[in-house]
Simulated assay, not measured.
Amino acid sequence: MPIDAAAALAAAPRTAEIAWDHKDVQLYHLGIGAGVPATGPRELRYTLESRLHVLPGFATVAGGGPPGVIEALSAPGVDVDLAAALHGGQRLRLWRPLPVRGTAAVTSRVTAVYDKGRAAVLVLRREAADSDGPLWTDEAEVFVRGEGGWGGERGPSTRTAAPEGEPDAVVERPVREDQALLYRLTGDWNPLHADPEFAARAGFDRPVLHGLCTYGATLKAVVDTLLDGNVRRVREYRARFAGVVYPGETLRVRMWRGGDDGDGVRVVVTAAGRGDAPVLDGTVGLG
């Protein structure tokens, strides 16, 4: 069997040293759509080094290493085709605000392998810490088509009930046609986001946007719209990727104050030009 769940779970954690500075932060911000308008005061806090605030989503690319999907597929006991893998969800917990520049040790391991019948789900957890202590913990859920059915634990459902009532805010965020090409410079070189032939082999008409790009753009919309740009209020952000986004589309981000636990923001994101096709469902936890 291409996925040996016991081997993946028993493997020793992997540790890597990472470093970043203002250039990496600025590239991430540009990669998720910051900088429009280029001289807008609210955008300059994402693009100008003298005013830089770090969006928490930067943690998912800090150090420029392989993204969760590719790292999970390189774990012991996992031997599958990259074209069969999709990013199913992401969870991020911030223990402290992210600095503009820093170094950290990141420890990663597969913490769960679930059998969904026609697919398997790998959960890769990464924990980052610097000399002052923990910085963040994140988990990537990797959906691998055709690799389920071995009788393993099904795992929890990640679906949540639809929000009630009208949203507190609705914003639209256009996605550039070259957004995926820009975002992949942060370190996610999965050809699904750039190569039409690979995208076709994976079952798509054309390359799709990185899920983590939509994830970051959504968080930026929440911070800008409901938090007055205060990135330090974000403590946790979890999301399920409900569908794909194609470069050139427009994201419609609906936000409800309160979130699932009453202290956060619930977000539902759709592709505005495709009949509001769902692409992301998540919650931003606040502190």
Rank of each mutant, 00 (worst) to 15 (best):
Ile18Lys: 09
Phe143Gln: 03
Gln179Phe: 08
Ala59Phe: 08
Arg184Cys: 09
Leu280Lys: 12
Gly31Trp: 08
Leu212Ile: 14
Leu181Met: 13
Phe143Trp: 04
Lys23Tyr: 10
Leu227Met: 06
Leu98Thr: 13
Asp21Cys: 04
Tyr215Phe: 12
Ala112Pro: 07
Gln179His: 07
Val268Glu: 09
Gly262Lys: 02
Gly229Asp: 03
Tyr246Glu: 05
Ala7Pro: 05
Thr158Tyr: 11
Tyr215Leu: 12
Leu219Asn: 05
Thr160Lys: 09
Val265Trp: 01
Ala75Asp: 04
Gly211Ile: 00
Phe58Lys: 03
Pro37Tyr: 14
Leu181Val: 01
Ser50Met: 11
Val244Cys: 03
Phe204Ala: 10
Thr103Met: 09
Gly211His: 04
Ala119Phe: 15
Glu172Leu: 09
Arg96Phe: 01
Glu197Cys: 09
Val222Ile: 04
Ala239Asp: 05
Arg159Cys: 03
Ala85Arg: 01
Asp4Phe: 10
Arg109Lys: 15
Leu55Tyr: 08
Gly31Pro: 02
Ala140Trp: 06
Arg206Ile: 03
Val245Asp: 13
Asp24Arg: 06
His193Tyr: 01
Glu249Arg: 14
Arg235His: 14
Arg51Tyr: 07
Pro167Lys: 14
Arg93Trp: 04
Glu141Asp: 14
Arg206His: 11
Ala84Cys: 02
Gly259Leu: 12
Ala104Glu: 13
Val110Arg: 01
Trp95Arg: 09
Arg235Leu: 03
Ala83Met: 01
Ala271Glu: 08
Pro163Tyr: 10
His87Pro: 00
Leu48Tyr: 11
Arg233His: 07
Leu185Ile: 07
Ala85Thr: 12
Asn230Phe: 08
Leu219Met: 10
Ala119Asp: 02
Arg101Asp: 07
Asp4Ile: 05
Ser131Asp: 15
Ile32Ser: 05
Leu9Ser: 13
Ala162Glu: 14
Val253Phe: 03
Glu177Gly: 13
Val222Asn: 01
Leu98Ser: 00
Ala34Glu: 13
Val284Pro: 04
Leu124Pro: 05
His22Thr: 09
Ala272Glu: 01
Ala242Trp: 05
Ser74Ala: 14
Trp95Gln: 12
Arg159Ser: 13
Arg145Thr: 02
Val69Thr: 08
Asp281Glu: 15
Gly243Asn: 10
Asp224Asn: 05
Trp136Lys: 02
Pro196Ile: 06
Glu236Thr: 15
Tyr246Pro: 08
Ile70Glu: 14
Ala200Pro: 05
Met1Cys: 10
Arg257Thr: 06
Arg206Tyr: 05
Ala7Ser: 15
Leu192Tyr: 14
Arg118Pro: 14
Asp79Tyr: 02
Val223Arg: 06
Gly282Met: 03
Ala11Ser: 12
Gly57Phe: 15
Ala7Asp: 07
Gly64Phe: 02
His22Ile: 11
Glu197Thr: 00
Gly146Pro: 01
Leu286Lys: 02
Gly77Asp: 09
Pro247Val: 06
Pro207Arg: 00
Thr47Asn: 07
Gly64Tyr: 12
Ile32Val: 11
Trp136Cys: 06
Ala112Trp: 04
Ala217Cys: 03
Ala7His: 01
Val36Asn: 03
Thr270Trp: 09
Ala161Glu: 10
Asp130Asn: 10
Leu226Asp: 00
